[in-house]
Design a protein around this nucleic acid. Structure first.
Lengths: 205, 205
DNA sequence: GTCTATAGTTAGATAGAC
DNA sequence: GTCTATCTAACTATAGAC
């Protein structure tokens, strides 16, 4: 049977371990043995639950992707004033990036390594992102004279950059800036509000 | 002999091929066979010129890192007015990222995958980055009342984010924003000046 | 469901001829 | 310097016992 307690528990152990290993080493750097060890089980069991390394990876990747592309819809389709939408968006993304520091680099890296593979495997995901909604909300703010003339994709790119790049660049940034872990965390914590302030001042009229 | 024309040419062919393959697949995804094929030579020759995959990789990584951490010194130690420094910095970085689109994700990814390896192999590089210079130039601009109060590392992080994130996130961004290659390139071209404008407006008093 | 043992494949690296 | 052939190790995946 599939639905016994111990089955579920093993599957969960595998997923947790796979997340850990894939996030840290990427698809090609990860070894099924590493995942088995991390889960405290045997290699063969991985293949019993998930047919292949690819299948297991796809599960983890999908799940991570969904976390990365979160409920922007709620923020942007809400009745919040425009600047509060910006604030909510930034805080949500900076927080997500802080709590899941490996996800952004993991997703972006795998998309670079296997660009064509995603059109077919993940071609459905884009539809979940309300890019037309985003664009129209920004355009309206421009038309209303609330913010200066700016191309919506440019603004969206700026928001994403400021929210997600820090966790991606962390190892390099700390190295070249000679910054301790404590200092970096403090800085990240402040960014939850600073990023929105920065953006708003950059676009307000 | 080592300095014949054909020697140099072969070594260059290998380096060019290695760059191509490592940039696209990362260290663990790259195969020595791929590099040999790309260079139009035999696998054994790779080991003749560079003892191991690691050695070859280190050569490519070093070279890429130096490109990523370019002559900021010149920009920031120049006599340019502060806002022109910002403009020069942004244009240099956006251009670099456009011309070498694989380098940022390559470097940042490898640093995530092998965090400890860099302290010993690349511990010398940070010294080349004039982070104290950057910080003091920004601090002076604040003290002079030219820009609003802002933590220098925060501003540096913002500048780097806005310049480098677009090329890193390109596959995802185009996918979720439903954007063509042409549109993306046009957008990137505009960013050479837009990023600086955005930053300056965000910090000016 | 979970394990041990092993098949089958591919990778990095070397030996040795030219 | 450059090649072919080969060694050795590592990895994914499966067969089969319990």
């Amino acid at each position: 049977m599939v639905n016994t307690v111990s089955d579920i528990s093993t599957e969960q152990k595998i997923l947790t371990a796979a997340r850990e290993v894939f996030f840290q080493k990427g698809f090609s750097g990860a070894r099924m043995q590493d995942i088995a060890d991390e889960a405290g089980i045997n290699k063969a069991l991985l293949h019993y639950y998930f047919r292949s390394k690819e299948k297991l990876f796809e599960t983890i990747f999908r799940e991570a992707f969904e976390k990365l592309v979160p409920r922007i819809i709620e923020v942007f389709s809400s009745e919040l004033p425009f600047f509060d939408k910006i604030r909510a968006f930034c805080e949500a993304y900076v927080t997500m990036a802080m709590e899941n520091p490996f996800i952004p680099i993991f997703i972006l890296n795998e998309m670079h390594r296997n660009p064509e593979g995603f059109e077919k495997t993940f071609g459905d995901i884009p539809k979940k992102v309300p890019h037309t909604l985003l664009k129209s909300v920004i355009k309206r703010a421009v038309d209303d004279g609330l913010i200066r003339e700016i191309d919506p994709p440019q603004l969206i790119m700026n928001m994403l950059s400021l929210c997600m790049f820090p966790t991606i660049s962390r190892p390099m940034f700390q190295l070249v800036m000679n910054m301790s872990d404590t200092q970096f965390k403090k800085m990240s914590e402040l960014r939850k509000t600073e990023v929105a302030d920065f953006i708003i001042q950059a676009i307000k009229k």
